[in-house]
Design a binder for these strands. Structure first.
Length: 925
RNA sequence: GCCGGAGUGGCGGAAUUGGCAGACGCGCCGGAUUCAAAAUCCGGUGGGGUAACACCCGUGUGGGUUCGAGUCCCACCUCCGGCACCA
């Protein structure tokens, strides 16, 4: 073996690691667990095993955590570095439908394929903990967690989830009563309308509890996608109002679906972002998605009626400028309010609004449309009669579905008022424009805002807000409040390939949870698992499990026949808690043992979590929510799941389009003198995310075969900072490849055994004492690389190693004391070649089990150094000084330097600035 | 429109708290090896300038602070990402 043969070496070491169990991570209680070591939990977002196999983004992601895992292991940590598969969900099912095979079979095939590819990269996963969200042993606990949600409610006083049994016992004891609207009130508020728990029947009780459970069946307008045959969460719908998957149209339809009360956690999901070390853009996306805004609810009385319309506003200080009111077309009061003469117009408008998709609404957003209802409301601050309109620029889903319109200080209201010639009043001073032409939306001092009891005139906006809110609260006309954009999480899907709900439906509409002892509820075997797709927006959802055999669908309990819930959970369910399962993946008594969970999640959960930014508001928000519920219920020990999140960048690549603008296969494009062609036809080049749509994918496995996994790993990490998007350039890969070959030539005793290749010098690693210069060079590299590895600066760590290796090339021979620390440092980055050379140097033990070298500070200090001497900022001379020279010594050395002395002769030295070890700057004139 | 992030050679990208800009790699140029090519090895490589030095100019643009600015402050330009009739 004279030249470097990546494939042989890589196979050999991958097998040896597996035989040695090198990367098994013992948990507390396991035989070889070493409690004296600190722990490190490093995790990549687990893959979706699609039929396309692994792509370069996966390779980048897993290589980065693998390097951290190997590095931390060498640094003496107990490292948890697991892998699993997120295998339920739409794409797996669609793939199965396309290929006419059961999704379980295709899923397992895909998992096998991607596992082989992962192993080929030499990744140091603890394969003993591998899991798939589709394993019954796994989704049993997904169902169990769902039951935790179902069986708890959010206690507003404690601001946390509490078992619903506590609520029941408070109702049982009479501490809480039920009012006529089904709301809970304390016993002190008992009246003729309130009822006690004992007066309610089973269904009545369940209806009350359903209002509180964190998982509940709710009938709300949901995103119905007939083409996919399923409903979707808000997070799965694009802002064009189409499905994220497949880009099909999505319609709002009121349907009875499972919902999770994530909105109860708005405040904590927002506040706890301050606890975690996450990229600022990702935190910002979550903050925006939660969408907190402070303001006030204000009640407007209706002329000639007893009831009121409640509006939400962030600018209560502009209340005196409210000249009309607008309700969303779906607002429940619209029909009651509308006067006869307006009825036809209102009906027509409501109908057309209901037929618009979100996309239509957006396109039309520039031109305001609306209809007068004929009704009037009374502005509570000044008693003015203001008309009530309906318009689709007000949405039912936010605030109260009604607004007070202040055209002077809101652009949308201004546009509407202009279109319908409604009055515009200025109530805040400021802005350069005439209020008749444009709204002034900034802050300023209130004006024209006073009644007999309160005046805002002259007050700055924040003060005016406080004053009017206080006044409204005193008068019982409104109160300060906080609104969120986040909606409850729509949690059911009309799909086969997902976790069944552990829920039963009784003949009288009872909803009953499956006993924990009866978990798991396994998916039934079915021949026909296809979804019921359609292009009719009014087609009703038909969950495929409706076609399951009766033996599965019908459950008899205490002589009553129940039907199982036929919907399944969304794809996100499994990924909400998989990081917990990895702590103790084989446990069949708990989702993970308490000891294992406490040990591996210690600190702030997963120590380092790496994945793409595309999950900023989906997986990462959902997982935080579940985690907080489990934390409240005492099942996990940390308030947050992922202490440090890191988003890796995209890998881009050149893509080519022919004259029609159609992408052609990038690998078939030829380049000649800067011109690109495909089958002889000219094509244009652009750069974009590597993937199927641009036909510019490069298969990591193919690169492995050609250059070796070590070269691929090095190149992926060497391209640039991990968090940046950067282009793949196939020709650049030879750089890291040459580096490995040079390492091989420098350090492998086998390299010189015959005469192949240039520059081979034979056995170069020798047992001699290193010189001071050699040690200096080594220890500088150790300091740099250690630092770079800690902050994930793998590109600069590799540069430092290349530099040291280039030095080695120039030495006649290489002392063992330099070669070996170098190999240890190379191990996380290029593990196979490091192992091979290490063993060739005569070691029995693996280099993966060595200790990371420490930088010796003695060698980091230059014992003698040259520093620049400047006069007025220009370098005029250089002097050589000992390292321990103090400022005084540097200053006199600089001034006595021949060249400097001659230059400052006759001038006055005004100031000498000394930067130790760097330079001396003399200010003279 | 609002909120984030970023602009450094032919290219990807380096540069502790402000301290010799361009590490390392690709590419390119020259050389070695070769019948030749590929591969490999050695040397050079920001621009201008010079026989060679010297010297001058250089981190998106314009100002500012400083002995000294890629780095700090102000204004602007460009690109990327997210949100978007959220009251």
């Amino acid at each position: 073996m004279s030249t470097y043969q990546s494939t042989d070496i890589e196979d050999k070491w991958q097998n040896l690691w597996s035989q040695h169990g090198t990367f098994r991570a013992p948990s507390p209680g396991d035989g070889n667990f070493d409690a004296s070591r600190p722990k490190y939990y490093v995790l990549s977002m687990f893959p979706y095993p699609s039929g396309a196999g692994m792509h370069m983004g996966h390779a980048l992601n897993y290589t980065s955590t693998d390097i951290v895992a190997r590095f931390k292991k060498l640094r003496g940590y107990n490292v948890l570095h697991p892998i699993g598969y997120d295998a339920f969900g739409l794409p797996a099912e669609q793939y199965a439908v396309e290929h006419g095979v059961h999704p379980e079979i295709t899923t397992n095939q895909n998992i096998d394929a991607i596992s082989r590819q992962l192993k080929r990269l030499g990744l140091s996963f603890d394969w003993g903990r591998v899991l798939s969200t589709t394993d019954v042993d796994y989704y049993k606990w997904t169902q169990w967690i769902f039951l935790q949600l179902y069986n708890s409610y959010f206690d507003e006083d404690q601001e946390k989830a509490v078992p619903i049994s506590e609520l029941v016992s408070r109702l049982d004891s009479g501490e809480l009563l039920v009012d006529e609207e089904g709301k809970l009130v304390s016993a002190s508020a008992a009246s003729a309308q309130t009822r006690s728990w004992s007066e309610l029947n089973e269904i009545g009780r369940e209806n009350i509890l359903a209002e509180y459970r964190l998982a509940f069946l709710g009938e709300v307008p949901v995103n119905w996608c007939p083409a996919l045959g399923t409903v979707l969460a808000n997070e799965e719908v694009t802002n064009e109002g189409r499905s994220e998957r497949g880009n099909h149209p999505v319609f709002k339809r009121p349907l009875k679906q499972w919902m999770l009360r994530i909105t109860k956690y708005c405040e904590r999901l927002l506040a706890d972002l301050d606890l975690v070390n996450w990229p600022e853009p990702t935190k910002m996306m979550q903050r925006n998605w939660i969408g907190r805004s402070e303001g006030a609810n204000v009640d407007f009385a209706l002329e000639g009626r007893d009831d009121v319309i409640r509006v939400f506003t962030t600018r209560p200080d502009t209340l005196f400028g409210a000249t009309y009111m607008v309700l969303a077309p779906e607002h429940p009061l619209v029909q009651e309010l509308t006067v006869d003469e307006q009825q036809a117009d209102v009906d027509a408008y409501v109908k057309s609004a209901s037929e618009k998709t979100d996309l239509d609404r957006q396109i039309d957003s520039k031109e305001k449309t609306g209809v007068f209802t004929g009704a009037y409301a009374i502005n509570p601050v000044n008693g003015e009669k203001i008309p009530v309109w309906i318009a689709d620029y007000v949405m039912m889903g936010y605030g109260t579905g009604a607004i007070m319109a202040v055209p002077g200080h809101d652009e949308r209201d201004h546009a509407f008022a202009t279109a319908f010639k409604l009055p515009i009043i200025r109530v805040v001073d400021g802005g350069d424009v005439d209020i008749a032409d444009a709204a002034f939306t900034g802050v300023g001092n209130s004006c024209n805002s006073a009644n007999d009891e309160v005046s805002l005139n002259g007050l700055a906006t924040p003060e005016a807000k406080r004053t009017i809110t206080k006044w409204l609260e005193c008068k019982g006309l409104g109160e300060g409040t906080v609104q969120y954009k986040l909606r409850d999480w729509l949690f059911s899907r009309q799909r086969y390939w997902g976790e069944p709900f552990p829920i039963l439906h009784g003949p009288d509409g009872q909803v009953v949870a499956v006993d924990e002892a009866d978990l798991p509820v396994a998916l039934p075997e079915m021949e026909d698992f296809k979804p019921s797709a359609s292009d009719d927006p009014d087609a009703p959802p038909r969950p495929p499990l409706g076609r399951a055999p009766e033996s599965w669908r019908i459950v008899e309990k205490d002589g009553v026949k129940y039907e199982r819930e036929l919907n399944t959970m969304p794809q996100w369910a499994g990924s909400c808690w998989y990081y917990l399962r990895f702590c103790d993946a084989k446990n069949d008594e708990r989702f993970a043992s308490e000891d294992a969970e406490r040990y591996w999640m210690d600190g702030l959960g997963v120590d380092l979590y790496i994945g793409g930014v595309e999950h900023a508001v989906l997986h990462l928000l959902y997982a935080r929510f579940w985690h907080k519920v489990l934390y409240d219920l005492g099942h996990v020990s940390t308030p947050e799941p992922f202490g440090w999140l890191f988003n890796q960048g995209y890998i881009q690549a050149a893509a080519y389009r022919d004259e029609r603008g159609v992408c052609v296969e990038a690998s078939e494009v030829e380049e000649k003198e800067g011109e690109y062609s495909h089958n002889g036809a000219p094509v244009t080049r652009e750069f974009g995310k590597m993937g199927k749509s641009l036909k510019n994918s490069v298969d990591p496995t193919v690169v492995c075969e050609e250059y070796g996994a070590d070269t691929l790993r090095l190149y992926l990490m060497y391209m640039g900072p991990l968090d940046q998007s950067k282009p793949w350039e196939m020709r650049d890969i030879v750089g890291p490849h040459r580096f490995i070959q040079r390492v091989w030539r420098n350090l492998s005793p086998a390299a010189g055994s015959d005469d192949e290749g240039g520059g081979v010098k034979g056995e170069r690693v020798v047992d001699r004492d290193p010189t001071n210069d050699e040690l200096k060079s080594l220890h500088k590299t150790i300091a740099r690389v250690t630092d770079d590895m800690e902050r994930l600066g793998f590109n600069t760590a590799i540069a430092a190693l290349i530099e040291l290796n280039n030095d080695l090339t120039k030495w006649d021979d290489i002392p063992r004391a330099v070669a070996e620390p170098f190999l240890v440092m190379l191990t996380p980055l290029a593990p196979h070649v490091a192992e091979e050379i290490w063993s060739q140097l005569g070691h029995e033990e693996l280099v993966s089990e060595q200790t990371w070298p420490e930088a010796d500070k003695d060698f980091l200090v230059e014992d003698e150094c040259e520093i620049a001497v400047q006069i007025l900022g220009k370098v005029r001379s250089r002097i050589t000084v000992p390292a321990d020279a103090d400022n005084q010594a540097l200053e006199s050395a600089a001034l006595s330097d021949e060249k400097i002395a001659s230059l400052i002769e006759g001038k006055t030295v005004r100031k000498v600035i000394v930067v130790p070890g760097k330079l001396v700057n003399i200010v003279a004139n």
